[in-house]
């Protein structure tokens, strides 16, 4: 997409021009009002808990897209059961990286805050916003991405994430000198490589019940913004997001009329268990 490294002042200016050109050229997913303000898109996902059938096609699509290691998952669908027979309830709660915006005012999610290499990369420009890559960083369009070539393997991000999204990835070896023996960290990336090309993430693409919806919150015509308007998701974050008490401002919203999220007890003691083993 419009993501360019800033090399020198002149290049930076050129990038600005290129951004405008690409934004105009790419239709479909890209926001129509991107030209109006300096705004970049703000990618978000809406998960309609009424529609999820627990088929786990998303988990498989994700595995196929990334070649996720055995025993690791970037997205899972949790079986959630409440009450005792005969009043039992069973629900499915799809889980993935929340791509948190971070506490208001701070605007840094906990994983990026704790990463010592969060600013170790190159200066880049997206739209009119400049940012810097790092081992874990937040792109101006809201995606929390990783660059494993900068990671030193301290795993502070794994501890910092309250959702247990991150885990050690046996398929990724670190590359920085002296750290070659350590393993990298894996997590859902919102399929940044697909979104940058103008198509939706693999899990959204494959979702049979259309329970997962992806789009740009800043663009009122996107399906996500429409759902947000209909269900007031961003207005009721305490209800529509996971662990609102952590003040991470997640950007994966759940349409949740049965109050499943509030009753769903996340395994805080062993949070990584949340993302290991789809069948419990």
């Amino acid at each position: 997409m419009s993501n360019k490294e800033i090399k020198s002042r002149r290049d930076a200016l050129k990038t600005g021009a290129a951004v405008v050109a690409t934004v105009v050229a790419t239709a479909g997913l890209l926001p129509k009002n991107a030209l109006a303000a300096s705004d970049n898109p703000r990618w978000a996902m809406v998960v309609d808990l009424r529609k999820c059938t627990g088929c786990r096609a998303c988990t498989i699509a994700c595995k196929a897209e990334y070649g996720v290691a055995l025993g690791r998952f970037n997205t899972v669908v949790k079986n959630v059961e409440f009450n005792k027979f005969p009043d039992t309830e069973k629900h499915f709660v799809p889980r993935l990286c929340n791509n948190c915006a971070g506490e208001q005012g701070k605007d840094v999610p906990p994983c990026v805050e704790k990463c010592p290499q969060a600013k170790a990369g190159k200066r880049m420009k997206l739209g009119k916003e400049r940012y810097r890559t790092g081992a874990t960083y937040k792109r101006p369009d809201g995606m929390i991405l990783m660059d494993m070539s900068l990671c030193i393997g301290c795993y502070k991000c794994i501890d910092a994430c309250p959702y247990g999204v991150r885990s050690i990835d046996p398929f990724v070896k670190l590359t920085l000198p002296n750290r070659e023996k350590d393993l990298g960290v894996g997590k859902c990336t919102f399929c940044a490589h697909r979104v940058d090309q103008g198509i939706v993430p693999a899990c959204v693409n494959t979702c049979e019940g259309r329970a997962r919806v992806f789009g740009d919150l800043n663009n009122p015509d996107s399906p996500v913004a429409k759902l947000d308007k209909e269900f007031n998701l961003t207005g009721t974050k305490n209800k529509s997001t996971m662990l609102p008490g952590e003040k991470t401002d997640p950007h994966v919203f759940y349409i949740d009329p049965d109050n499943i999220l509030a009753r769903y007890k996340l395994n805080k003691e062993n949070k990584q268990q949340e993302f290991i083993g789809t069948f419990e």
Partner: peptide, 13 residues
């Protein structure tokens, strides 16, 4: 290290 880069980034911006 990290704070310095953040400061420099803001200065450059």
């Amino acid at each position: 290290y990290k704070y310095s880069i953040v400061l420099l980034d803001d200065a450059m911006n």
